[in-house]
């Protein structure tokens, strides 16, 4: 469906993207995940045609659209702040893409209205067509923006931080709703997020980006369980990092707070200086004896809470080792 080859982009002296290759299959739900400045939004805008790459090609459905402007790419784009036309009613917003058509593609007014109504029903905003965007809640506006993008029957749906401006509860509901909608419509979709939880929950595949490069592409479970670079290990999920004694400088062992076994004769000893409940587990934080490294551990909350000042001995039972270049030198150790 989408094939990106060698996409590069600079903004003045600032390199935003370095040679991005990405393939997306029809019907896939893809998350572009990365911190701000990683180039994820730039990549999304290049796929849409709102921005143009300096070099590389963009293929949509086998067609080279590298130099086509957004208006001719037939993609639906949902903006982070919705970009609803505030002087138009919700129905007119949704029908905008149909009403600007000229010539033989132009539907009669009644048909455009019927289509807008149909889309509003799809996004569960039936009956709100005569309101103005200013009279809607954040979550409702988001759904209007989605309906407006879907009205042009796009071959691809692109969403820029779709839940960024919403509060936590609405965000969670909308997330599930979008997931269902995607399944129901079978549309190929790509969304940008800096929220790993969102990416892992929604996407079929997660594309982790950092400093204009793709660090790893994979199913959420694979990205979480088998991060291929120190950045992914650190950015997706929580990770403890320990320097490896007796190896080249910069080598690190990464393990997640729950990837440990308690053992009275464990190799590591944590001196607990903070404890709190983190959902279903106890989170104990503190410095390791010897190396003085800061570490977080998850302990079953069925047991007693760890005490401050207590020493917890443990072994990481599953860990990854990276050398100073960020190459993985060893998979699951110990």
């Amino acid at each position: 469906m989408i094939h990106l080859r060698g996409i590069t982009k600079r903004f003045g002296d600032y390199p935003a993207l370095h040679g991005i290759d990405l393939d997306v299959a029809p019907g896939e739900f893809i998350a572009l995940l990365g911190p701000s400045g990683s180039g994820k939004t730039t990549l999304l805008r290049i796929i849409a045609g709102l921005e143009f790459q300096d070099s590389g090609t963009v293929l949509l459905g086998g067609e080279d659209v590298s130099s086509l402007p957004v208006a001719q790419r037939h993609v639906g784009f949902v903006f982070q702040h919705y970009a609803l036309f505030r002087h138009m009613t919700v129905a007119d917003n949704v029908a905008f893409g149909l009403s600007v058509r000229r010539g033989k593609d132009r539907l009669p007014k009644a048909a455009r209205h019927a289509r807008a109504e149909e889309l509003l029903r799809l996004v569960q905003l039936e009956g709100l067509g005569s309101r103005y965007p200013g009279q809607l809640s954040g979550g409702q506006r988001q759904r209007v923006a989605l309906a407006r993008a879907l009205a042009i029957e796009p071959r691809l749906l692109l969403l820029d931080e779709p839940f960024g401006a919403l509060d936590a509860k609405v965000r969670k509901d909308l997330r599930r709703w979008l997931r269902d909608l995607h399944k129901q419509m079978g549309l190929t979709s790509i969304f940008v997020t800096h929220d790993q939880e969102e990416a892992l929950e929604l996407a079929d595949r997660v594309v982790v980006m950092n400093q204009g490069r793709i660090e790893q592409i994979g199913a959420p479970d694979a990205v979480y369980m088998n991060p291929e670079t120190p950045f992914v290990s650190h950015f997706v999920g929580e990770t403890n990092r320990l320097p490896v004694p007796g190896t080249a400088a910069g080598s690190e062992i990464h393990f997640r707070p729950h990837e440990i076994t308690l053992a009275p004769d464990g190799a590591e000893a944590l001196l607990v200086d903070n404890v709190f409940r983190k959902g279903a587990v106890w989170r104990a934080e503190g410095l390791l004896e010897g190396s003085g490294q800061f570490v977080e551990l998850d302990l079953p909350s069925s047991g007693e809470a760890p005490r401050l000042g207590q020493t917890i001995r443990f072994n990481p039972h599953r860990a990854r080792m990276f050398n100073a270049n960020g190459d993985q030198t060893q998979g699951e150790t110990r």
Binding site: A48, G49, L50, V70, G76, A83, F96, G97, A149
Partner: peptide, 20 residues
Amino acid sequence: DDEEAAISLGANGWQTFWHV
């Protein structure tokens, strides 16, 4: 954003200016 939304929905330059 509003202008980009309009052109992504297929509006031409004049329509974008006049309607948005």
